[in-house]
């Protein structure tokens, strides 16, 4: 398995407040890396700086494109554009991330137009094919987002991300706003698309149960630092850092006989040994 993404010493601060503190990790092709942590731990800032949706203060992000390795932060916006095709994002809120004035056809076509792909007729076919992939009816294309349920809208968001045939998909809390049964359907869909298209996911989530089920590896973030990284089995069965233990102890088990006994935050040495 080859490496797809390599992040080294990435830092970002807002108004002097350090939000992401020297984060480094690698990501292998066709795998899923979960990023977990509480609100304010820097998960979203981290992935946004990787995508250059915001500019980080320092550090390098190297991406292994179809044409070889690129340093994403040394490229001009124009040079970056072809790479943007390979890296796409699925957002959290399926209501806020779709333009209510655009039909599904326009929403899904827009990325193709921006990247100058195909003509009107071929784009229409591509949209139809994509809708089928995310299990939406082909008649959906002429409708507006308000006509869809939350789960269906998230499928539209997935279709928009995948229509450019990306290799790396960043999911920022993409199933957090969904009901548990819809969430299960969307996770199933993401998993089957991954095996079909060989996608690599960077999966930001706060629900550890979802991460346990969906990811191969996990980064645990706490106040801007990666405090632990490992495979799902390692992290969940043998957590090393106190913060990981605190997170795991807080998961409510659906078995009423497994009582919730969250660790006491104050008794833990959370700020000791913050670097991995």
């Amino acid at each position: 398995m080859s490496q797809l993404l390599s992040v080294t010493d990435l830092c970002k601060s807002f108004a002097g407040e350090s939000v992401v503190k020297s984060v480094s990790f690698e990501l292998n092709e066709s795998s899923t890396l979960g990023i977990v942590g509480e609100s304010g731990s820097g998960k979203t800032t981290l992935v946004r700086s990787i995508l250059r949706a915001i500019e980080p203060d320092s550090g390098t992000v190297r991406y292994n494109s179809r044409e070889g390795w690129h340093d994403l932060h040394s490229l001009s916006p124009k040079e970056l554009l072809p790479l943007r095709r390979e890296i796409q994002m699925i957002f959290q809120d399926p209501f806020a991330s779709l333009n209510p004035r655009m039909t599904v056809q326009t929403i899904l076509e827009e990325p193709l137009i921006i990247h100058g792909i195909g003509d009107k007729e071929s784009r229409k076919q591509q949209v139809a094919k994509m809708l089928e992939k995310v299990q939406l009816d082909s008649s959906s294309a002429s409708r507006f987002p308000h006509a869809f349920s939350g789960g269906q809208r998230q499928r539209i968001g997935i279709a928009r991300a995948l229509i450019l045939e990306p290799r790396l998909v960043v999911c920022d809390e993409s199933v957090s706003a969904l009901d548990v049964s819809v969430q299960a359907q969307i996770l199933d869909l993401l998993a089957s698309l991954q095996s079909e298209l060989g996608l690599t996911y960077l999966f930001v989530a706060h629900d550890l149960r979802v991460v346990r089920e969906f990811c191969d590896d996990v980064l645990v973030m706490y106040s801007g630092n990666v405090v632990e990284r490992g495979s799902v089995e390692e992290i969940f069965n043998n957590p090393q850092h106190d913060y990981t233990r605190l997170l795991l102890s807080a998961i409510p088990s659906p078995d009423p006989d497994e009582k919730l006994q969250p660790l006491d935050r104050k008794s833990l040495l959370l700020d000791a040994g913050l670097t991995v």
């Binding site: 509480e38 706060h206 629900d207 997170l247 998961i251 409510p252 919730l260 969250p262």
Partner: peptide
Amino acid sequence: LDVTIQAEILV
């Protein structure tokens, strides 16, 4: 709420 805070509130 975050899962850790949720656990505290439930308890």
